[in-house]
Design a protein around this nucleic acid. Sequence first.
DNA 1: AATCCGGGGGA
DNA 2: TCCCCAGGATT
Length: 305
Amino acid sequence: MAAGTVDRADDPSGEPLADPARRARLQALLLAWYHRTARDLPWRGDADPWAVLVSEAMLQQTQVARVVPIFASFMARWPTAPALAAAPAGEVVAAWQGLGYNRRALRLHRAATVITSEHGGTVPEDLGVLQRLPGVGAYTARAVAAFAHGLAVAPVDTNVARVLARLHGRALSRAAAQERADALVPDRDPGAWGQALMELGARVCTARTPRCDECPVAPMCAWRGQGPDPAASSAHRSRPQARFEGSDRQVRGRLVQALRERPVPGPELSAAAGEPDAERVRRLADALVAEGMAEWDADALRLPR
DNA sequence: AATCCGGGGGA
DNA sequence: TCCCCAGGATT
């Protein structure tokens, strides 16, 4: 080592993991912890690309515990993209019950249609092609590429962004987080690495009450729970939402839930949605129709065929 | 950059 | 109650 070379461990530039040796140590520590303690989730391991895509669509803004049982029944019913593409969109929306964000069901159905008609029924490997699928953004495209196809890319979700900000001890923009994540991807089993980072964020390096005393990579962490949380001012953090009680989202949700059970005649929509303002219900019903979430059948609203 | 989109669980 | 959740699309 040349005289005067800075010790990257104390590099004030904010790149504490730029040193290859430190990077390798971080990878070794985290992967060892992951292989020792990982939850056995149905889409991990040798899951096929379609299963990975389905799981990632379901996991968008939705906790693992809620996805697991629905994922199982969904995959049993539609084991391939062509199988899902052949189903009526309304049945997919019905099967989405319990997950929320029902538009994801429509988008997944549309993605299955594209995969079937344009990609021979096989989930694409190319990042750009993946990201062009409905409902597939920067995160999901990389998740599928890494987890299903073994590509050396780094999916950055809310967990990974938080972990990286804390490891580096500084707030990270969206682009900066992706850059740091890319720089850390190991050549061997990049999928496991991505899973390990998310697992750490989900179980140890949590948003609210991080368990730094149990963290396998605490020795490599610039933050360690001391002082202001660098993740708090980073991109990817959850945004405050409008109040749900009384919102359009709530009424929409009730409307779609009612349609899962049966078509609802127009005059009964208000009662079915538990919303006395009939004009409001009509507006929301029309919006559902406009985006393909429902259809008018004579005088009744129903899920699309 | 802000909003919209669901709904449930944890602190 | 408030906050968070393996985000993406639209405006």
